[in-house]
Amino acid sequence: MIAPAYPMTMPRQRPLTPADIGRAATLALHDELSLAPKPGLVTLTDCGSHTDMDAHTFMRSMFSLRHYFVHIAQAGFEGAGFDVLERSGIAAEARMRHATGGVNTHRGAIFMLGLLCAAAGAALHDEGGALHGDAVRTALRRHWGDALASRSQRVSTLPGGIAARRFGLRSASTEAALAFPVLFDTALPALKAAQRRGLTPPEARLDTLFHIMAVLDDSNLAHRGGLAGLRDAQRMAQDFVDQGGIARPGGMTHAHAIADAFVARRLSPGGAADTLAAACLIARICVAS
Rank of each mutant, 00 (worst) to 15 (best):
M1P: 00
P11E: 02
Q13T: 14
Q13G: 10
L16D: 02
T17D: 15
A19Q: 09
A28D: 07
D31V: 14
E32P: 07
L33K: 04
S34C: 13
L35A: 10
A36N: 05
K38P: 07
P39F: 15
L41M: 09
T45A: 06
C47D: 05
H50P: 02
F58G: 03
R60E: 14
S61C: 07
S64P: 04
R66M: 06
H67S: 14
Y68M: 01
F69W: 12
H71Y: 12
I72P: 02
A73S: 05
Q74P: 02
G76Q: 15
F77D: 03
G79C: 05
D83S: 13
E86Q: 13
S88H: 02
I90W: 04
A91V: 02
A91H: 03
E93V: 05
E93A: 03
A94T: 04
R95H: 08
R95W: 09
M96L: 09
V103Y: 03
H106P: 00
A109W: 07
I110N: 03
L116Y: 12
A118P: 00
A119Y: 06
G121P: 03
G121Y: 05
H125C: 13
A135Y: 04
T138V: 09
A139S: 15
D146C: 10
A149W: 07
R151Q: 15
R151H: 13
R151G: 01
R154H: 11
V155F: 01
P159F: 11
R165C: 02
R166Q: 13
F167T: 14
L169P: 07
S173E: 11
T174Y: 02
A177N: 14
A179G: 11
P181K: 04
P181Q: 00
V182L: 09
V182W: 01
L183R: 03
L183N: 13
F184H: 12
T186M: 06
T186Q: 15
A187Y: 07
A187G: 14
L188S: 06
P189S: 07
A193I: 00
Q195R: 12
G198Y: 09
L199R: 10
L199K: 13
P201N: 11
E203A: 13
L206S: 11
D207L: 04
F210K: 11
F210N: 06
I212E: 12
M213E: 09
V215D: 09
L216Q: 08
D217K: 05
S219V: 10
N220Q: 15
A222D: 08
H223T: 15
G226Q: 04
G226F: 02
A228P: 10
L230H: 03
Q234E: 14
Q238K: 05
F240H: 08
G244P: 03
I246Q: 07
I246F: 11
P249I: 01
A255Q: 13
A255S: 13
G270E: 01
G270W: 01
G270M: 13
G270H: 09
G270K: 02
A272Q: 06
D274M: 01
L276I: 11
A277V: 08
A277N: 11
A278Q: 00
C280Q: 06
A283W: 15
R284C: 13
I285G: 02
S289A: 12
